[in-house]
Design a binder for these strands. Structure first.
Length: 481
RNA sequence: CGGGGCGUGGCGCAGUCUGGUCAGCGCACAGCGUUCGGGACGCUGGGGUCAUGGGUUCGAAUCCCAUCGCCCCGACCA
């Protein structure tokens, strides 16, 4: 963006210092603020509104596919967590423990949930007795605590919000089908609502969820060329049902262990929206999740309170009636120019300016945040045109992000090219991998790149990018957050 | 947990090397007035025990020791 075009000067340009831009914009736009405890943040109203929109839109999808919401306890007794050793080992470095109730030391320590498989498994063993009880399809919206060493607002905080689905099924096939159905649901959700294209596939053994049979994930490319895991869906097999003794009598009157899945997305998604779409001027929200979709700014010139304001207010009411999230900013203490910059920084998709000149011409000036394009539209047809404009913004944001992903996905067939791409533009590296963890480990050690996913569609085989062994499968590597 | 950087009104910083009108600037905030089609301006005003705790000194934001916290880059993770 040219200097002349850049009206927002309150933040470090994204193109200059990505990390700094990210943390500055979060605070300037009042999405979140640092709490007085290490690694913890306060999600402020403007940031929480995005999470609420994500919740609402995803919750609808979760319910449409037959799931219901419930709520399980925040604390998990140590003995429960210990039942699945692989699971415990996966999480133990980051579990926060409650050791005292008031002044008294507890008989048994309580973990603040780092995830809820254990407590839910415990309950499912009580609830599930017969094949007629299955499937159990429960989701919960909850907070989670993981004592991470390095934190960043939204991307990795000590406490975060998420949804976690936990299902139990009669057969292995049914559990696998659920796992993949959710993976697709996540992909569709993120692309449709957040306008962020993702790649999806299976995780390798080293990246797998502790205690899972298979982990599937969706991954997106952020505009600094690093990958971000956006959501995971785990096929837990019978690991947890055997440990927590979740058995049912099947249709042939035999006792069987249930087949389980779990899956989740978190407030990290808010971070992904900031990073994927933002630019030097600040945030850029896709209309479908924007806390405010349209801001109306009356131009305070001359006798504007009589001549301009009533029209602006009527427009606000009309748009609200249509269900749009609209804000009219008629404050006198800020100039129109200040407001333009402010709402650009805050990422509001559409701005409508109305001044005396517009009233004279029976029009309004409409400015898109995504392209900054200005257009004068007749007041008579404005309201009717809004749905098309906003849907166009949503579409073109996704298209732009897709183009970026395509331009930053490199197909390589040898380790030299692999390394040189990582040194220059990063992004996704599509290549073949032999399936041997030694190769995966060595590549990570030398390049910091990990296998983000193994795509589910595998039409051809090729030589491993590192050891050149035959019959490798397609994988996507990237440096990740 | 390693390597680096930094803690001075709400935010961004200067001052620290060389101890002594250094408690200062910009933005933000409050009041009044003029402004307002791309972050307006003038005047007036409020706000900081210089991260914390020790020490050195006649005297410490400044020097020494310790502690805490934050940021960035790595190792680990949603």
């Amino acid at each position: 963006m040219n200097k002349e075009e850049r009206f927002v000067t309150a933040i470090t340009p994204k193109s200059e210092d990505f990390s700094r831009w990210y943390t500055e914009i979060i605070r300037r736009a009042e999405l979140a603020d640092y709490a007085p405890m290490k690694g913890m943040m306060v999600i402020r109203p403007y940031g929480y509104a995005i999470w609420e929109n994500i919740q609402r839109l995803l919750d609808n999808r979760i319910k449409e596919t037959g799931h219901t919401n419930a709520y399980f306890p925040l604390f998990i007794p140590e003995s429960l967590l210990q039942k699945e050793t692989e699971h415990l080992e996966g999480f133990s470095p980051e579990v926060a423990w409650v050791t005292h109730g008031g002044e008294e030391e507890l008989e048994e320590r309580l973990a603040v949930r780092p995830t809820s498989e254990a407590i839910i498994g415990n309950m499912y063993s009580k609830w599930i007795k017969s094949w007629r009880d299955l499937p159990v399809l429960i989701n919960q919206w909850a907070n989670i605590v993981r004592w991470e060493k390095v934190t960043r607002p939204f991307l990795r905080t000590t406490e975060f919000l998420w949804q976690e689905g936990h299902t139990a099924h009669e057969t292995s096939e049914e559990a696998e089908k659920e796992t993949l159905m959710i993976l697709d649901l996540y992909k569709e959700f993120v692309e449709t609502e957040l306008a962020i294209p993702v790649i999806s596939g299976r995780k390798t053994a080293r990246e797998r969820f502790a205690g899972a049979l298979e982990t599937y994930a969706i991954e997106a490319l952020m505009s600094d060329g690093k990958a971000l895991q956006m959501g995971t869906s785990h096929n837990l097999g019978q690991h947890f049902s055997k440990v927590f003794n979740i058995r049912f009598e099947d249709r042939d009157q035999k006792l069987q262990y249930v087949w389980q899945t779990s899956w989740g997305v978190s407030t990290r998604l808010v971070g992904s929206v900031i990073m994927s779409h933002g630019d030097d001027s600040g945030l850029k929200f896709p209309p479908r999740i924007a806390p405010v979709q349209i801001v109306i700014i009356p131009i305070s010139l001359g006798n504007w309170k009589q001549e301009v304001l009533p029209t602006a207010q009527a427009l606000e009411q009309g748009l609200k009636k249509e269900g749009w999230r609209v804000k009219l900013d008629a404050r006198e203490e800020f100039s129109p120019g200040w407001k333009f910059s402010e709402y650009e920084m805050r990422g509001i998709p559409l701005r409508i300016e109305i001044g005396p000149r517009d009233i004279k011409n029976n029009q309004a000036v409409v400015v898109r945040r995504d392209t900054m394009a200005k257009e004068s539209i007749s007041l008579d047809s404005l309201q009717a045109k809004i749905p098309q404009i906003l849907s166009d913004i949503q579409d073109s944001m996704l298209a732009k992000a897709r183009k970026f992903q395509a331009e930053n996905t490199s197909e390589v067939d040898n380790y030299q090219d692999f390394k040189s791409v990582l040194e220059s533009k990063r992004g996704f590296l599509k290549t073949f991998w032999c399936g041997n963890q030694d190769c995966e480990d060595k590549i990570k050690e030398e390049t910091m790149a990990t296998i983000r996913v193994v795509p589910l569609e595998q039409e051809e085989k090729g030589k491993c990018v590192l050891c050149q062994a035959d019959a490798g499968q397609w994988v996507f590597f990237a440096r990740a957050y």
